[in-house]
């Protein structure tokens, strides 16, 4: 089966929190094995868009979603779609590093354990593979059974990346993953992301324009729940077509 070029296709997506419209008809495609950056001022709906892709918005009361979101051609809002299974395919990284207050080992294998994996050799192997992929293996390999909360913020975030990678998702959503971290930790996370690109499709929401221009292949600019401009990152930053985009990336507002 030939895999379509687009991992995620979003069509005419509207999302309402109660009466308030947070996304106003968004149509956008996210490509396979690329990093797509979503930028825009606070409250423009970029995090909301991210959470429609793994249906984490389902947890918020009074949310209405119309339009379609397809993952690998499968409509994820179809009535027979299991949100729990979907989230195993679509991992998510949050703004605040949020490891569980358990050991590093228990954190990484959490996703596998809840899927019923009990074989020790499989779990051990997954821990090593995931921590290596998240570029933190060398720092923690001798203390896998220490509490993950004892690590620094940047290390915690990479543990969270490893935790996502352990379940081998197809897509990783990142909601401002470095905004709570110092510059050195941030650049470590960015390096990790660039390595992950070969195996995963990544969508990252960020308010850091330099970060978007450094790491992403394509950039989408959102304003007030609408997609204003979308294209190769180079074009968005060098030759924006719309005035709003130019104003935003040159720092005139937001």
């Amino acid at each position: 089966m030939a895999e379509p070029k687009d991992m995620i296709t979003v069509q005419d997506l509207h999302l309402y929190y109660g009466q308030q419209e947070a996304l106003r008809g968004v149509t956008i495609d996210f490509r396979r094995n690329e990093i797509t950056a979503v930028i825009g001022p606070s409250g423009c709906g970029k995090s909301t868009l991210l959470k429609t892709i793994n249906r984490l918005n389902d947890l918020v009361p009074d949310v209405t979603v119309t339009g379609t979101v397809k993952l690998n051609g499968q409509d994820i809002y179809a009535p027979n779609m299991d949100a729990v299974e979907l989230r195993k395919e679509v991992g998510m990284l949050f703004q605040q590093p949020n490891p569980f207050p358990f050991s590093i080992y228990d954190n990484v294998i959490y996703g596998l354990r809840i899927s019923g994996e009990k074989r020790k050799n499989v779990l051990d192997e997954a821990v090593e593979r995931s921590l290596k992929a998240a570029a933190i293996w060398d720092e923690v390999k001798d203390r896998l059974h220490d509490n993950a909360m004892s690590l620094s913020g940047g290390q915690q975030q990479r543990i969270c990346i490893a935790r996502v990678l352990a379940t081998q998702p197809k897509v990783i959503l990142m909601d401002e993953p470095t905004s709570a971290l110092d510059p050195i930790s941030s650049s470590e996370i960015e390096r990790t992301m660039l390595k992950l690109k070969d195996d995963y499709s990544i969508v990252i929401v960020t308010r850091n324009m330099q970060q978007a221009s450094r790491i992403s292949d394509r950039t989408a600019f959102f304003l007030a729940g609408e997609l204003i401009e979308y294209g190769p990152t180079r074009d968005i930053f060098m030759q924006p077509q719309k005035k709003e985009t130019e104003d935003y990336i040159s720092g005139r507002f937001g």
């Binding site: 793994n54 729990v84 299974e85 989230r87 949050f94």
Partner: peptide, 13 residues
């Protein structure tokens, strides 16, 4: 709250 979010986002019921 973010422990719960993290767990659900990892595909936990």
């Amino acid at each position: 709250r973010n422990y719960r979010e993290a767990s659900l986002a990892l595909g936990a019921t």
